[in-house]
Computed example of a mutant assay.
Amino acid sequence: MSEGRQDRWGGLSVNRLAAAHVAALLDQAGPLGLRVERLDDGVTLVDAGIDAPGSVTAGLAIGEICMGGLGTVRLSTRASDGWPAWLEVASAQPVLACLASQYAGWSLSASKEEAGGKKFFSLGSGPARALAGREDLFTELGYRDQADCGALVLEVDRRPPQVVIDKILRDCGLTAEQLVLILTPTTSLAGTTQVVARVLEVAMHKAHELGFALQDIVDGSASAPLPSPSPDGGIAMGRTNDAILYGGRVHLSVRGSDEAVHDLALRLPSLNSRDYGRSFADIFRDYEYDFYKIDPALFAPAEVWVSNLDSGRTWTAGSLNMALLRDLWLEESR
């Protein structure tokens, strides 16, 4: 990395900043319902919901690890808004926190033979992505971390095979003792929580896809309702997506022309998608479980507020659809 590109981000290291959060997670593993294992090669493996029970509190901590220590994830009780549990996410460095760290963009896979009889696939999220830099996104950001420690979160229901662990170590340039892998199945409390905690990241990724200049996004905050996980993987995955698509509210503070900021506000919400209005699980099924057939415009928060710091003007678009979420998530009491 050139010195100029390093200076653009003030020398911030998402892995070093996340390290204190990782240490706290390991220290509180028992109370948080986690199981920590040191593998034979020295890698630390954290089970946050496969054989260990995990917890919402663990999911909050993992959400902050995913954001590279550059964001906060909090739980609030807001039954007056139509659901009792909400996540509130904020970052003063949303580009690094969300895109260089939290975004689940690192594809990791192994064949049946490599994985011992069953194919393995996971998208890695968290700060170790910035060590590997395997995605084109890091070239666009002009960012690459060079820390001597790393944490990666895998949304899986089984431990990764050794061939995948070896690839992570090799691509990150870490020794085994320097790597922490956190496993968070979406069917678990921690897994559901850390996925819904991506509500701000979803908005950041959508803004990037729409061509808005990332360097002009200064600050971000967001909230989304936290559903109960389902033991069915497809339903659990659908609920986490629905929480953001229909219940996610995001506020971005940006710089630029009023025209560009207004355009971003109008184009950002999920209701711009032709697929808007049904549960994500049903949409995914109807597209034969092919993410690439889904309208990309759907992957966005329900409601956005965008403030232009250069002019002092704010625009809003979209709206929460709590009626749909209650229909999907809430059982009638008789």
Rank of each mutant, 00 (worst) to 15 (best):
Y143P: 08
R198W: 06
I217L: 07
F212K: 13
D145I: 04
H208V: 11
T186K: 04
G142H: 09
R134N: 14
V156L: 06
A190C: 05
G150Y: 01
L169D: 03
G142D: 11
E209I: 07
M204K: 06
V163E: 07
K206E: 08
V218D: 05
E209M: 12
I182G: 04
V153D: 02
L154M: 12
D219Y: 14
V163F: 08
L183H: 09
D219S: 08
L154F: 10
T193N: 01
C172M: 07
S223A: 09
D171E: 15
D145Q: 03
V195D: 01
G191H: 02
F138P: 12
S228R: 10
L183T: 02
R144V: 00
I165G: 05
A151P: 07
P161Q: 11
T193Q: 01
D136M: 14
L169R: 09
E135A: 15
V153L: 08
Q146M: 11
D157S: 14
L226R: 02
A197I: 04
V163R: 13
L200K: 02
Q178N: 09
D148S: 11
A222Q: 00
S228L: 14
R159H: 12
A213W: 15
C149R: 05
L141W: 03
A207L: 09
T186Y: 07
T184A: 02
E177I: 05
T193V: 01
A213F: 13
A190W: 03
D148A: 12
Y143I: 09
T186H: 05
Q194R: 05
A224S: 11
F212L: 10
A197V: 06
V156Q: 10
L200D: 01
P160S: 07
E209F: 08
G173E: 02
L169S: 11
G173C: 09
S221Q: 10
A190Y: 04
E135I: 09
K206T: 08
A147V: 01
E177P: 06
V218Q: 04
A207F: 04
G211F: 15
D145A: 00
D145M: 05
P227H: 03
K206D: 02
E177H: 13
L179F: 00
E201Y: 00
Q215M: 12
F138S: 11
E140T: 15
R158M: 00
P225S: 00
I165A: 03
A207C: 08
L152R: 03
T192K: 07
P161C: 12
Q194G: 06
D219H: 13
L189G: 04
A197C: 01
D157K: 07
A224H: 03
G191R: 02
A190H: 05
A147Q: 02
H205N: 12
C149M: 04
V164F: 08
E135P: 03
E135G: 04
Q146C: 12
A213N: 13
L154T: 08
A203I: 07
L169E: 01
V196Y: 01
